[in-house]
Amino acid sequence: MDKARTSSRRTSPRLWLAGGWLLLALLAAILAPLVAPQDPLAQDLMLERLPPFWLDGAEPGYWLGTDSLGRDLLSRLIFGGRIAFIVAFAAAASACLIGSALGLIAGYFGGWADRIISRVVDIWLAFPPVLFAILLVAVLGTGLSSVIIAIAVIDWTRFCRVIRAEAMSQARMDYVESARIAGYGRMGIMLREVLPNVLPSVVALLSLEMGIAVIVEAILSFVNLSISTDDPTWGGMIAEGRLSIHQAWWVLVFPLTTLILTVLCFSQFGEGLKARFDPVLR
């Protein structure tokens, strides 16, 4: 018990810091119309390229400054978070569901199921992912749902490979054999005995994948293949900020920092959760 307590205290800071930022960003995104200080789409050429609040020439109410069209950066970041989180949750959850289920089946049942699933994964991995994504979106058409579908279709293999390997090593354990002897069915053993043991990895991967989904969405926005260009997205903001980097660095730096921080927090949060929920690691 003592051991468990000290080590969970050790894993706490990263879990809480990462979780804190994610929660803050999520709440801001959900409550965007209430908390955003300005209309994210309102252009005002009188206010173009205002600097952030601590620099000379800043305007009150425009905390992080404005872009080259005079739109408030903070408000755009907050509204951009909505799309980032929707994509993160929907795409990662779909990829996770498909990949983990197939990985579990391949790893636990082995044999035919494993051979077919593993072959499909190999074929999938032969495609370069970003190219694959761009291709898919080009075929499906731009829009939020095609971005989500594209990410799920590409990244389920990430879950499948890891979960397959873990399920496979679990399936070799004696407790699985004992369950067989006791008379449990194969399906029951897979879901009740093996699944709980791979769940910490599923959770960690899920969180990591949310971060990856945010990046992929940003890349697609950056190359103008995500959703309509009117709605602010982090990737779109980075693309715009790149153009005015010499006149107004903040237009690029804030969305970039937000993106990196969020992605980092997703992966740290996942690792923290894994350490927390894995009874052996704990």
């Binding site: 354990m173 004696d174 407790y175 054999e177 004992s178 067989r180 002897i181 006791a182 008379g183 005995e193 709980p196 043991n197 769940l199 894995d278 009874p279 052996v280």
Partner: peptide, 24 residues
């Protein structure tokens, strides 16, 4: 066969660590 084996037999295994489910 599974039912019969499950009802009439049991195993005391060699390695008591892996014979118990680590997450339960």
């Amino acid at each position: 066969r599974r039912t019969l084996i499950g009802a009439r037999t049991a195993l005391i295994p060699q390695d008591p660590l892996t014979a118990l489910n680590p997450s339960r």
